[in-house]
Computed example of a mutant assay.
Amino acid sequence: MDSRKIHFLASDGVLAREALTRLIARYGQRPAAGADVIVALGGDGLMLATLQSAEARGLPVYGMNRGTVGFLMNNYSEEQLDERLASAEETVIHPLRMRAERADGEVVEALAINEVSILRAGPQAAKLRILIDGRERMAELVCDGALVSTPAGSTAYNYSAHGPILPIKAEVLALTPMAAFRPRRWRGAILPKEARVTFEVHEPEKRPVSAAADSFEVRDCERIEIESVADIEHRILFDHGHGLEERLIREQFA
């Protein structure tokens, strides 16, 4: 791949900004509108934001780790970038759409590549009613929160909450509770990718709840709907032999 068709961008970290300067000097810089690929320098937060912005142009994103958490990033190297991009493995990710209804009647929509998380926003536990495709499956979950994760995000917040790691090609979503108090032993559910998950908040004034699509937060929610979006694709590139499927398997044996 011609390095003149690369668009580089970086997070605000010192390492990332220094790497950006060196890579542009070595490989040149194309505007995003005329590029074949975006190379993102930072951590997973930057990768998620870049995938969102690149989707409109259909561009793949290749990340190099110049941040802290770098599960979605490749190892940093300034050598042979053209060759690495030419042989890279591509994974296509379909995001989740969150539709959150606030107490004041406002409806906010956002996309999430990793997960949509529902979190208590006060000192008392949240009380959530869970519906799947409009059918009540749990009348009341008392918890610190719950989340719905894609396979790509299953090693992130979902895994920290003791949710399952999902194979990247699995046509499923993970529904995982956080610090469930009642039912105390409920560990969550594996759902079809096409499932529409709805959380209804009980006692929202006494037990306020926020919803977050990746890092985009909506506060004072009363109802949150989550579903996978089949017609939106995010393209992410990994070094040959180190694709996302391999990373997910490797993570389970770490």
Rank of each mutant, 00 (worst) to 15 (best):
M1H: 14
K5N: 07
H7A: 10
A10F: 01
S11A: 11
S11Q: 09
G13V: 08
A16Y: 03
T21R: 07
T21D: 03
T21I: 04
R22T: 05
R22L: 07
L23Q: 03
R26S: 01
R26I: 10
G28K: 15
P31E: 10
A33S: 07
V39G: 07
G43H: 14
D44S: 10
L46R: 11
L46A: 11
M47L: 14
A49T: 03
L51S: 07
G58T: 13
V61K: 05
Y62K: 15
Y62L: 14
R66M: 10
T68Q: 08
V69W: 04
F71H: 13
L72F: 14
L72M: 14
Y76V: 12
L81T: 06
L81K: 12
L81N: 06
R84T: 09
L85N: 13
A88S: 15
H94K: 07
L96Y: 01
R97N: 00
M98Q: 00
A100N: 01
E101G: 00
E101H: 00
A103P: 02
D104E: 05
D104G: 02
D104I: 02
D104A: 05
V108I: 05
I113W: 03
I113L: 12
N114D: 09
S117M: 11
S117L: 11
I118H: 04
R120C: 01
R120D: 02
R120E: 01
P123Y: 15
P123F: 15
Q124E: 15
A126I: 01
K127H: 09
R129W: 02
R129H: 06
I130R: 10
G134F: 09
E136S: 05
E136I: 08
R137T: 06
M138R: 09
A139M: 03
E140I: 01
V142M: 05
V142Q: 08
C143P: 01
C143W: 04
C143A: 13
D144C: 10
L147P: 01
S149F: 11
T150Y: 04
S154I: 12
S154G: 04
A156E: 00
Y157W: 13
N158I: 15
Y159N: 10
G163V: 13
P164G: 15
K169I: 05
P177S: 12
M178S: 08
A179R: 10
A179D: 06
A180D: 05
F181R: 11
R184V: 03
E194W: 08
A195G: 03
V197D: 00
V197R: 03
T198D: 01
T198G: 04
E200C: 06
E203R: 09
E203W: 09
V209N: 01
A211G: 02
A211D: 00
A212Q: 13
A213N: 05
D214M: 10
S215W: 06
R219T: 13
C221Q: 07
E222N: 07
R223I: 02
I224Y: 00
V229D: 00
V229A: 01
A230H: 05
I232S: 04
H234F: 08
H234T: 13
R235A: 15
I236H: 12
H240S: 15
H240W: 13
G241D: 09
L248A: 12
I249V: 15
R250V: 13
Q252P: 07
Q252G: 12
